[in-house]
Amino acid sequence: MTWYHYLAAGAFLLCLISLLSHLIRLVRLGAPNDYSRRRGNVGSAIVFSFLGAMSPAKKESAYLHLPTYTAGLLYHIGTFVSIALFFLLFFNIQPAAWIRWGVIGLLAVSGLSGVGILVKRTTVKKLRLLSSPDDYISNILVTVFQFLTLVLLIQEAFAPFYFLGASLLLLYFPLGKLKHALYFFAARYHLGFFYGWRGIWPARKS
């Protein structure tokens, strides 16, 4: 273990504790108690909320903005892959060469998607109005993390920079919008419950 391994492990632990405290609060507060007479199937609506309702065909936010939607999707895939690789790389486990080059390609695309999203945020007026420093910092940290993962897969000597970048991201994670990684699931649960209780979801053809 080197200093940067300790740093990354500490940052990960702090991030985990903080996110766990958010999760515990969510669970302790619990779901709302609805006294109205249920009309639909809540279980299937919650499943629909996470699957069918997320399809681009169901959301204007996706089908009216396909390039942004695609970039966002790739960016998130790149993030998940980078997080998974963080654990492997921490224990110095290198993926097989053919996987490595596939991942490098994916991270190049997802990282560029992140840059594209950042450019859009800085150039589109309505997004600038919406954005706080947190939005820019979050985007930069995640994008840099993806590029650092990519570089480390090519050049192992880059490890100190990689773990420093990962630690910064992990320490920042609970402070701002990146928390949506946790709250997203809670929000979609509530939305599925709401629409399912009233028989609105799963959507039927009208």
Partner: peptide, 23 residues
């Protein structure tokens, strides 16, 4: 002082993507 987790779930989830504008 929310009564349940609904409020904190939604208030912490927006990522400021702005894609809701056209809706």
């Amino acid at each position: 002082q929310p009564k349940d987790s609904q409020l904190i779930s939604h208030v912490n989830s927006c990522v400021h993507c702005g894609l809701c504008a056209e809706s």
